[in-house]
Computed example of a mutant assay.
Amino acid sequence: MSRLIGLGLLLAGLLYPFAVYFGMEHFAPWQFGLLLGSLWLARALTGERKPGSLWMAGAAIVFCLLLALFDSPLLLRWYPVLISGFMLVLFSLSLKYGPPMVERLARLREPELPDIAIRYTRKVTVAWSVFFFCNGLCAALLTLWAPLDWWMLYTGLISYGLIGLMFAIEWLIRQRVRGRT
């Protein structure tokens, strides 16, 4: 059940900018808040207890409650900023309290990492932290000063393209680093 809820949250996150852009004519902001808040509440109640999962769910539920309470179309546009903020906090705190997020992910595939790989994963975690800061900043600026269609284009397409580009660049760099060892 928790996997289904996680998949629902993932799909909701991916489709959110389009749902806001095309759904505003048919649904009120409070309805978005209740639907999204229900998914986050279900995740909090049924999901695995991973570091950060409860505070993220709590913050998202508070956001959704505010969205439902104020019924504000402008508030709808802050959700992608919130998600980038979550990712920034997860990645950057993993640098302080360790192990870095990318090292954790790498150890799923290769449990015994050499020292050079551990240093490399730390640098990649820093790069992702910078990316999520910049991505959240762009989404916030678009929320504050851009038309809805620009916001939707960035948060629904461009930011995902940039994530894919980050993955591709990191993969290419990783191949070079591996080739040196």
Score class of each variant (00 low, 15 high):
90 L>W: 09
90 L>I: 12
92 S>C: 11
92 S>H: 06
92 S>T: 13
92 S>F: 09
92 S>Q: 09
93 L>Y: 12
93 L>V: 13
93 L>K: 13
93 L>I: 11
93 L>Q: 15
93 L>A: 14
94 S>L: 08
94 S>Y: 06
95 L>V: 03
95 L>A: 02
96 K>V: 15
96 K>M: 11
96 K>Q: 09
96 K>L: 14
97 Y>H: 14
97 Y>P: 05
97 Y>S: 13
97 Y>W: 14
98 G>C: 09
98 G>F: 06
98 G>H: 10
98 G>R: 14
99 P>H: 06
99 P>W: 06
99 P>F: 07
100 P>C: 04
100 P>S: 04
100 P>W: 01
100 P>F: 00
100 P>Q: 01
101 M>K: 04
101 M>F: 08
102 V>H: 03
102 V>L: 09
102 V>P: 00
103 E>D: 09
103 E>A: 07
103 E>S: 05
104 R>I: 08
104 R>Q: 15
105 L>W: 05
105 L>Y: 04
106 A>F: 02
106 A>T: 09
107 R>E: 10
107 R>L: 03
108 L>W: 05
108 L>K: 14
109 R>F: 07
109 R>G: 08
109 R>L: 03
110 E>F: 13
110 E>N: 15
111 P>H: 12
111 P>E: 14
112 E>T: 09
112 E>V: 12
112 E>S: 13
113 L>E: 06
113 L>T: 00
113 L>Q: 03
113 L>R: 08
113 L>M: 08
113 L>S: 07
114 P>N: 13
114 P>Y: 13
114 P>F: 14
115 D>G: 12
115 D>W: 05
116 I>A: 15
116 I>E: 15
116 I>V: 15
117 A>W: 10
117 A>H: 11
118 I>G: 00
118 I>F: 00
119 R>K: 11
119 R>A: 11
119 R>M: 05
119 R>G: 03
119 R>D: 09
119 R>W: 05
119 R>C: 01
120 Y>G: 04
120 Y>H: 07
120 Y>W: 13
120 Y>Q: 02
120 Y>A: 01
120 Y>N: 06
120 Y>T: 05
121 T>C: 10
121 T>E: 01
121 T>F: 02
121 T>M: 03
122 R>D: 01
122 R>A: 05
123 K>S: 10
123 K>F: 10
123 K>I: 10
125 T>Q: 04
126 V>F: 10
126 V>C: 05
126 V>D: 02
128 W>M: 06
128 W>R: 00
128 W>F: 02
128 W>C: 03
129 S>Q: 04
129 S>G: 13
129 S>F: 02
130 V>W: 08
130 V>Q: 02
131 F>I: 07
131 F>V: 09
131 F>L: 11
131 F>D: 10
131 F>T: 03
131 F>H: 06
132 F>I: 06
132 F>V: 05
133 F>M: 11
133 F>I: 06
133 F>L: 15
133 F>K: 01
134 C>M: 12
135 N>V: 11
136 G>N: 10
136 G>V: 11
136 G>H: 12
137 L>R: 06
139 A>F: 07
